[in-house]
Every structure is written in C-alpha cells, then in structure tokens.
C-alpha cells in the first residue's frame, strides 16, 4: 500500500484539514499522520468516523501521500491544490497563510 493520510473539511468553516498523530485536525498537510500499513489506516479511519459523527469534520477520506524531506506531501494534483491553494491565486489559501511549505 502507498502511504496514506486522511483529509477532510472542517464542518463549521469548510477549511481543508488533515488528521494528525495526536488525533486532531490540522490546517497543514505537513502535520498529517501517515499510515504505512492497512492497520494504522483502519485506526485512522475510525478516528475520522468518530470526528464525522461528532460534527467536527465532513467528507473525510484517505489520500495518497509521499514523504519529502520527511514531510507528507499529497501525490495527486487535486490533493496538492487542496494542501496549498489555487495555483492561479498564490496569494490565497494555505500557501499564503504559510501553512504550505515555502514554495
């Protein structure tokens, strides 16, 4: 299995977030907990399901990531754009809030 993280949108404001090792939700993909095997992914999905039920997040789903300099980075275009912001407005989104790594 490729490395996985779990992303979602926060219910109250819709902001894209990632599940962290502490079981919280961070606005930065670099804080994401990375699953290397099916068991840890299952455990993470259970946490995400609870957070969904608790109305913390919506649309939680696992995404493919790889490690760059030890930090998780999404591999798919859409997930990269989610993690950084619109490619056509570099002044907006995580990339502008410095939640993305320096571009």
């Amino acid at each position: 299995m490729s490395l996985k993280a779990i992303t979602a949108n926060r219910l109250i404001d819709g902001i894209a977030v990632w599940l962290t090792p502490a079981g919280r939700w961070s606005e930065s993909v670099y804080d994401a907990r990375v699953a290397e095997d099916a068991d840890s992914l299952t455990a993470m999905e259970a946490i995400a399901a609870d957070a969904t039920k608790a109305c913390t997040v919506v649309d939680a789903l696992p995404i493919d990531v790889k490690l760059e300099d030890g930090l998780p980075v999404p591999t798919k275009n859409k997930e990269r754009i989610r993690a950084l912001g619109p490619t056509v407005r570099l002044d907006l989104g995580k990339q502008a809030d410095r939640l993305g790594k320096a571009a």
Partner: peptide, 13 residues
Amino acid sequence: RLMNGLYLQIHAY
C-alpha cells in the same frame, strides 16, 4: 444547503 446555494468545495464552502 444546496437549495440555499452552498457547496462544499476543495478549499472551503
């Protein structure tokens, strides 16, 4: 929410 024009998109609502 859709009938009130509100979508959930990549970055936010």
